[in-house]
């Protein structure tokens, strides 16, 4: 019986918010779409590897509402993001900023690709006349 009441308590109270709730949504479709896009690039700091758009935590809910509020105030996407970075650090952005050591992370792919392809062409392609 105790369990039953506990169950009632858990299910009938707002035990968890689950991702974007209907009351969070903005009426302006364009703004809402931008809010979703920004949310998907922000990390939920109290979760395990989740963005705030799909997270059910209180932190994510607050941040989603904050992003929407700022959008309604007319801030641009990058203004909102850089404000959040200044408040929470780079950790909150799921795409590391292109600066300092992070440049290595971005360049390693293209560099390896160029080196690899060059090596192939210089060392492995046979000269037609030689054949």
């Amino acid at each position: 019986m105790k369990i039953f009441f506990l169950l009632l308590f858990v299910i009938f109270t707002n035990f968890e918010a689950f991702a974007v709730e209907p009351n969070e949504k903005l009426d302006n479709e364009g703004l809402e779409r931008r809010a979703r896009l920004i949310s998907s690039e922000l990390r939920c700091l109290v979760c395990q590897n989740e963005n705030i758009d799909s997270s059910s935590s209180e932190f994510a809910t607050d941040l989603r509402i904050f992003v929407r509020k700022k959008l309604q105030e007319g801030l641009t996407d990058s203004e909102i993001k850089s404000y959040l970075v200044s408040k929470y650090g780079d950790f909150i952005i799921l795409r590391p900023p292109f600066k300092e050591y992070n440049i290595i992370l971005y360049l390693i792919g293209p560099l390896l690709f160029i080196i690899g392809v060059l090596t192939l062409f210089l060392l492995f392609v046979s000269k037609k006349r030689g054949n």
């Binding site: 780079d90 799921l94 971005y106």
Partner: peptide, 16 residues
């Protein structure tokens, strides 16, 4: 190496 915290998530992989 630097003590900083960064996140590497879906937006990074999509881009690169």
């Amino acid at each position: 190496f630097s003590g900083d915290q960064v996140s590497v998530g879906k937006p990074f992989y999509d881009l690169s």
